[in-house]
Computed example of a mutant assay.
Amino acid sequence: MRPKISGKVLVAVDDLDLRRSVATHLELYEGLVAIQTDSGKQALELVKDMCVATVLIDADLPDIDGEDLCSLMRRRGVKIPIVLLSARDDDADVILGLDSGASDYIIKPIHMGVLLARIRAQHRHFAQLYNAVFPIGPYVFCPNARILAHRETDQKIRLTERESSILNSLYRMGGKPVPAEWIIGEVWGEQVNVNPHVVETHIYRLRQKLEPDPTNLQMLVTDSGGYRLIQ
């Protein structure tokens, strides 16, 4: 059984036929939502404003070099997989692409089956990466153990599986607000019918554990875009 990936994929590719083909394969075979653009500048705005899980960037966008765009996204805190597509196959070009912050470098012409497999591999890699130990406010978060450990007192707070998954998903978004519907897709799955009020209940319980004063939210806040984790 193939691993499930979820979320929206930003496809920033100049070639219209290639962009549509990639988007069609992502939607038909992976059940993902593909957001298309041929502009690097628009891609920067979309990855900031949309709940994107993966970015595909063409190295030869008309308005900005793909490697430069990748570097900009990383400097702006984008932590999701970025896959760079390029017709340049010299070792120096591959090294430049990966050093710019790309998670993977795929040489054109592209075999769609290979592209989808590489995207799934990146999701597995990032899932393992963010299932390591990382800091949230005064805590160290251990997703695998579903534990928040206070760094000064070493007090351990146990989380439920859902609470841990929600916290992990919010952390991956790098402080961007996400709606309840996105959390449902990430934690319960795109095909599961879950009322947003269920998310609200889990967020409430998570705040009781995470926030020093749940009446004065400092880390897990709500704004116009949804829920946001301040890191």
Rank of each mutant, 00 (worst) to 15 (best):
Gly174Tyr: 07
Leu32Asn: 11
Ile183Met: 12
Lys48Ala: 12
Leu220Trp: 03
Leu167Asp: 05
Glu152Tyr: 03
Arg74Ser: 06
Leu206His: 05
Arg75Asp: 04
Leu159Gln: 00
Glu30Lys: 14
Phe141Gly: 09
Lys176Ser: 11
Ala145Tyr: 08
Gln191Cys: 02
Pro196Trp: 01
Asp68Met: 13
Ala34Glu: 02
Ser169Phe: 08
Leu32Lys: 11
Gly225Lys: 08
Arg2Glu: 13
Asp104Pro: 03
Tyr204Ile: 00
Pro109Lys: 13
Phe134Val: 01
Asp104Trp: 00
Leu98Ser: 06
Ile136Arg: 01
Asn195Met: 07
Arg124Ile: 10
Asp90Gln: 05
Ser100Lys: 09
Ile230Trp: 00
Tyr105Asn: 08
Gly113Asn: 10
Arg158Thr: 12
Leu210Tyr: 03
Ile136His: 08
Ile119Asp: 06
Leu28Ile: 09
Val78Asn: 10
Glu163Asp: 13
Pro62Ala: 04
Leu84Gly: 08
Cys70Pro: 14
Thr37Phe: 00
Asp60Gly: 02
Val140Ile: 03
Leu18Pro: 05
Tyr139His: 09
Val178Glu: 02
Gln231Glu: 05
Val94Gly: 03
Arg205Val: 00
Ala87Leu: 02
Arg172Ser: 06
Glu152Asp: 15
Val140Asp: 15
Ala53Asn: 14
Ile80Thr: 07
Lys79Leu: 12
Gln36Ala: 04
Asp104Gln: 08
Gln231Met: 09
Asp91Val: 15
Asp89Phe: 12
Ile57Trp: 04
Val133Trp: 02
Leu98Val: 11
Gly31Tyr: 11
Ile35Lys: 15
Asp89Lys: 06
Ile57Ser: 01
Leu85Lys: 04
Glu27Pro: 15
Cys142Leu: 10
Gly225Trp: 04
Gln36Cys: 14
Pro138Asn: 06
Ile106Pro: 11
Ser100Gly: 13
Arg172Met: 14
Pro62His: 00
Ala102Asn: 07
Ala87Arg: 11
His125Phe: 14
Thr153Gly: 06
Pro179Ser: 13
Ile5Ser: 02
Pro214Gln: 03
Leu229Cys: 06
Ile35Ala: 03
Ile5His: 03
Arg88Gln: 15
Val22Met: 14
His25Pro: 05
Glu186Arg: 14
Ile80Ser: 08
Cys51Phe: 04
Lys79Phe: 02
Ile5Lys: 01
Phe126Ser: 05
Val22Lys: 06
Met112Tyr: 11
Arg205Ser: 10
Met73Glu: 05
Ile166Tyr: 03
Gly97Leu: 05
Pro177Phe: 01
